[in-house]
Design a protein around this nucleic acid. Sequence first.
DNA 1: CTATTGTATATTGGATCCAATCTGAGTAAA
DNA 2: TTTACTCAGATTGGATCCAATATACAATAG
Lengths: 221, 221
Amino acid sequence: MKLETIDVRQSASAADLVFEALRKAIIEGALAGGEHLRQDHIAQMFNTSRIPVREALKRLEQDGLVTNERYKGTVVAELSTAEVEEIFEFRALIESEVIRLAVPRLDARRLDEARGHLEDFAGEADPSLWGTINRNFHYSLYAASERPYHLQIVRSSLDRVDRYLRAQLTLTDGMRRARQEHEAIFDACARGDADEAARLTRAHILDASRSLTAFLENRRR
Amino acid sequence: MKLETIDVRQSASAADLVFEALRKAIIEGALAGGEHLRQDHIAQMFNTSRIPVREALKRLEQDGLVTNERYKGTVVAELSTAEVEEIFEFRALIESEVIRLAVPRLDARRLDEARGHLEDFAGEADPSLWGTINRNFHYSLYAASERPYHLQIVRSSLDRVDRYLRAQLTLTDGMRRARQEHEAIFDACARGDADEAARLTRAHILDASRSLTAFLENRRR
DNA sequence: CTATTGTATATTGGATCCAATCTGAGTAAA
DNA sequence: TTTACTCAGATTGGATCCAATATACAATAG
């Protein structure tokens, strides 16, 4: 008898699971900036020893999501307003270029997918889901760029500021503006106007940045 | 009595030392692509247990310098020609923008430093040092941009392709062309012409990319 | 009462040990 | 000859134990 060789999805290691869970918690804001991540505590939560936890923390540190001081421990990274601003400036540069590359490669399927996220975004009442839908919308367009490295960097830079971006969407009128801007971006993509899509994406990110830094400065005062 | 409070430089952890050593070996090409990194072997080389080695390998994996398969091990990452090309395309985008931001902030000290690296580059006979001098030249200019996040990404993307870039400098006429292009970039910076410096930097990186991909395609045939 | 010192506890970093899995040589069967 | 199978060694992943350091708090001197 000959069986199909099934590509058994190799189960993730404990370290991978811990890493993904912590990453998600940080970018969603479930873990606040400055919060102390105790190895022991996390290990108990995941029913493992501290070893996989430590590997996960090292990976998070490499991504800039946490910082570690020897013998003191690991805390969720906090960004200054200047740092947030710089990362948004960076995103504006990369993401506008990525969408410029994506537009000529967009097909009907992807456009439909993006339109779906657009509608989800407009129809979703629960603010805790806006951040994820926002990401999905942009990614569904960016994916067409066929630039895996660029997309990885986009993901990494967005990870760092996602907590702040979610706050901005929720706590200001960011959601309303984002919706309008998304529609304009989508229209430019549907028309095949890459330069306009790039220009609008850049403006969209810088708009969010201005709104967010104003909000942060207010908060801190 | 009052003593000067000296900032005792906290000794790096074993994991940090291993990480830096392996990183250096990979970007310099001392460890070839595809090479298997055995935890045990590395641990012995550094006189430690495997624990810090594993943490270092996790960090390298996060940076894309190595890849890991569960229970199989960690190997030095190998990039396809397409991947190398994409990373150079990315670098052209970022580094041209970084130097545009840097030019208006360049002062005499930094320009002198860059000129020094330029002369080092021209005068150095040992090809194994060209890669590092090349990096130093560009960094001394980029540093003025005052964009720590951008610089970190520049470092990370260059790390991934540095092995290949060094090969291109050494094994083709890349060195000669790089020297000419560096001089042109430096002149534009010294004149304060940010747009021209950005344009030349972009061309410099894309030129190296073309030369390198041609070289790699030849090699693989 | 305050500042300094000593000490106990908590926490992290690293070493050693055990379990899970891969790999490859050797063997048997078609 | 070739293919499948078995088993031993090698290697990785994870658990447990020990060492180094930090932190909080009590004790003591001024």
